[in-house]
């Protein structure tokens, strides 16, 4: 456990590709996983995060620092999150959501999930497949059967050729 000194405590995090990061404890404990380690007294040396790579961890730390600098104002926090995620592509979002899941950071999880949901909103099946690179492994007959079962969901979505 960190000694109760006047200076803010800094933690060292290690990504699975051996990059080291320094981060203020007050920001890092947004992650319940890290907080538990700190509370259990395991945060003395370097905290290894085996499921997060350096690139993603750098991004998550930027988020941790950014959001913890904002005082308790839900509106401002929300607009920070929106801005933080606005230029991220899906690959990055997928990495982030996995990292947030591993680190147990529900606010980041929710924000990234909402961002991905927003991308899927009112889009045709063909569009979503192309956007996320999902391979259609249905036979035409099977696909027609599933579509028939949920016929009501196929009207009024943004059309495209292979819908």
């Amino acid at each position: 456990m960190a000694a109760e000194t006047g200076t803010p405590t800094t933690l060292t995090l290690k990504s699975n590709d051996d990059e080291l990061f320094s981060v203020a404890e007050s920001a890092a404990i947004l992650s319940v996983t890290i907080r538990n380690m700190v509370e259990d007294g395991c945060a003395g040396g370097v905290i290894p995060l085996d499921n997060v790579d350096g690139k993603t961890l750098a991004s998550v730390i930027t988020y941790m620092n950014g959001i913890s600098a904002i005082p308790a104002d839900e509106e401002k926090k929300k607009s920070y999150r929106d801005k933080f995620l606005s230029d991220k592509d899906f690959e990055t979002l997928a990495d982030m959501v996995l990292a947030a899941n591993y680190l147990n950071m529900s606010c980041l999880m929710d924000a990234v999930s909402a961002k991905i949901a927003q991308v899927m909103e009112k889009k045709s099946v063909g569009w979503v497949r192309r956007k996320f690179g999902i391979e259609n492994d249905y036979t035409p007959e099977e696909e027609a059967a599933v579509k028939e079962e949920h016929k009501w969901t196929f009207e009024g979505v943004e059309t495209d050729d292979d819908n």
């Binding site: 899927m120 909103e121 009112k122 099946v125 979503v128 999902i134 079962e149 969901t153």
Partner: peptide, 15 residues
């Protein structure tokens, strides 16, 4: 977070 319609439609994406 999706509407019922959008959520159900994902069943057609793949097996």
């Amino acid at each position: 977070l999706l509407s019922q319609e959008d959520a159900v439609r994902t069943s057609v994406l793949s097996k």
